[in-house]
Amino acid sequence: MSLHPPIPALERAFEVTAELGPLEDHGMTRVGHRRIIPVIGGTITGIFEGTILAGGADWQTVRADGSIEIDGRYSARSHDGELLYVRARGVRSGDPAVLEALLRGDDVDPESYYFRAALTLESATRPELERSVYIASYIREAHRVRYVAYRVT
């Protein structure tokens, strides 16, 4: 019997390319500077294959230091009609000049900023996807976001 918990590892699970609509800047609200970025389409490949559906969004809160709290929610549909709900909670942070360049839509080396999230998956037809913890590493581009999700073993 082991007296120590298992050491987690990462197993590549899926990749997402999410196409984004124009940023909606709600300004300073009671919780902080609120921005909403619509998800208008995209693809998911790997342990789930399908199309990202329009209608999701990333509800962001910009912190005083310029870092961004990520709260992304969207759905995907597989080629045979299965649905997957994805929720991503994370942080994008970095040097203020780098964050401004990302906001402008400039191409920025993903090594120059931090953009990670914890993912929760829901699926009525693929319950095995709900039994694991996932984390993702992102790249922000002008009109889309790309990430690789890893299952924590």
Rank of each mutant, 00 (worst) to 15 (best):
T125M: 11
G42P: 04
L99D: 05
E69S: 14
S132T: 02
E128V: 08
I37C: 06
R131M: 09
L119A: 07
M1F: 01
G81A: 11
H143L: 07
H79E: 05
R30T: 11
D71K: 01
R77N: 01
G72D: 02
I36S: 02
V39K: 01
P38K: 00
L20M: 12
T29H: 00
H33C: 02
T43N: 11
T17P: 04
L102H: 03
V31C: 12
G32P: 09
V133Y: 07
V31K: 12
E111L: 13
Y147Q: 07
P38I: 01
F115P: 02
I139E: 13
D58N: 14
T61L: 14
D107K: 05
G32S: 13
V145A: 05
P5M: 08
L103P: 00
E24N: 08
A9P: 00
V148F: 02
L102C: 07
T61P: 00
A64N: 10
F48N: 00
L20H: 06
D107E: 15
A97M: 02
G41D: 04
A101V: 10
T29G: 08
L99H: 03
A88T: 05
I68N: 02
R151Q: 15
P5V: 12
R77I: 12
L99G: 01
L103H: 10
P38D: 00
G66V: 10
R131V: 03
R77W: 00
P8V: 10
L20W: 07
H4F: 13
V86G: 03
R116F: 01
R73G: 10
G94D: 09
A88G: 11
V62H: 03
P6T: 11
H33W: 14
D58I: 06
F48V: 04
A88W: 00
V145Y: 03
I7M: 13
E122S: 11
S123E: 08
W59T: 08
R89I: 14
L121V: 05
E100T: 14
P22Q: 13
A57I: 01
E11M: 11
P110G: 12
A149E: 05
H26L: 14
G46A: 09
A18K: 03
L23V: 15
D109N: 15
L129K: 12
P110T: 09
V108S: 06
V62D: 02
H4S: 13
L119R: 06
R34M: 12
T45M: 10
L84H: 02
S112A: 15
D65T: 09
D71I: 04
D71E: 09
R140E: 02
A101M: 05
F115T: 00
A142M: 04
H143R: 15
S93T: 06
F14T: 04
M1G: 12
G66A: 12
I135D: 00
E100C: 05
R146T: 09
V16F: 02
E24Q: 13
A149T: 03
G66E: 08
P5N: 02
E128R: 13
G66S: 09
Y150N: 14
S112N: 13
A136K: 06
L119E: 14
D58F: 05
E49G: 07
V16W: 01
E49V: 12
L102M: 07
R89A: 06
D58T: 09
L53D: 06
M28D: 07
L20F: 05
R131T: 13
L121S: 04
E49W: 07
F48S: 01
D95F: 07
E122W: 14
S75M: 10
V108G: 07
D109K: 08
R35Y: 03
G50W: 03
R126K: 12
G42E: 03
L103I: 00
I47P: 03
